[in-house]
Amino acid sequence: MENKTLSLEDQFQNRIDSGENIEAKDWMPEKYRKTHIRQISQHAHSEVVGMLPEGNWISRAPSLRRKVALLAKVQDEAGHGLYLYSAAETLGISREELNEQLNSGRAKYSSIFNYPTVSWADMGAVGWLVDGAAIINQVMLTKTSYGPYARAMVRICKEESFHQRQGYEIMLSLCNGTEAQKAMSQDALNRWWWPSMMMFGPRDEESPNTEQSMKWKIKKKTNDELRQQFVDQTVPQVEILGLTVPDKDLKWNDETGHYDFGTIDWDEFWDVVKGNGLMNEKRLKDRNEAWDEGKWVRDGASAYADKQAEKRAKKTA
């Protein structure tokens, strides 16, 4: 009964505070809806664009074993994009609009995919570090307050762990190989380390949305907390490979029980976000080409479906 005196927003916050999930048809503040459409669609776009740097290497994988693994991983990422687009659509945006936002370049996706994949070792580093960083974020999101998003994350997390393991296995074989192979993996680590660190987003004090996101339980940990978790779990993995993290300030801190690390180049981060990364243009071009070249398939399927429907209508008439 007392609930009647609470505003809708307060009632909504109470539901979140008591750990309830919000579902598609529930009342929600407009800003909660908008924030989710933005975040879920950016996440979906990242899965889709994320196929490009790895798809680039499928035909050049060094063995059949590596090729089927990479192919399966890239196929999974397409599925992840689909789960997330579906979750975004529950909030009242159409797939057509989502597609248009990506292809026109208006939408953002994770900047990590605007770095080039120049060697086979990059397939190792991407699976291990980029999927590794993504997993940390996505495990947190399985507990996010919006039900359809949380459920998509559960499904995604189940599929992700093989992505990271196949990447690490690539690194491991290269590091146990020739000097040149080991050097190639060190080079990949050098190039992917800092961009992976940036995947968690700006530092907490420069992340104005964090407070609202935590209040709505969209996020349960801050960017800096997630980044620290990444460093702490990844450094021992680097050591097993016998490689060196490209950070001279990296040091175990007995007092905090965490690794201290050097300063991230935030100018580079913002520069890539703004579209000046090495691959921003190429990714968008490839994305648009794939969409345009798939048009005849979509048209064909539509025409076939129409014909079948017509036939059925005639039969029942």
């Binding site: 599925g79 579906s86 659509e89 459920r151 998509a152 499904r155 399927a301 479906a305 079948q308 429907a309």
Partner: peptide, 19 residues
């Protein structure tokens, strides 16, 4: 378990299998 777009029911089943 989720949803997807498809032109007709047959395609929906095939896509569901793949996804």
């Amino acid at each position: 378990c989720g949803s997807l777009h498809a032109a007709d029911e047959e395609m929906a089943i095939q896509n569901a299998r793949d996804v």
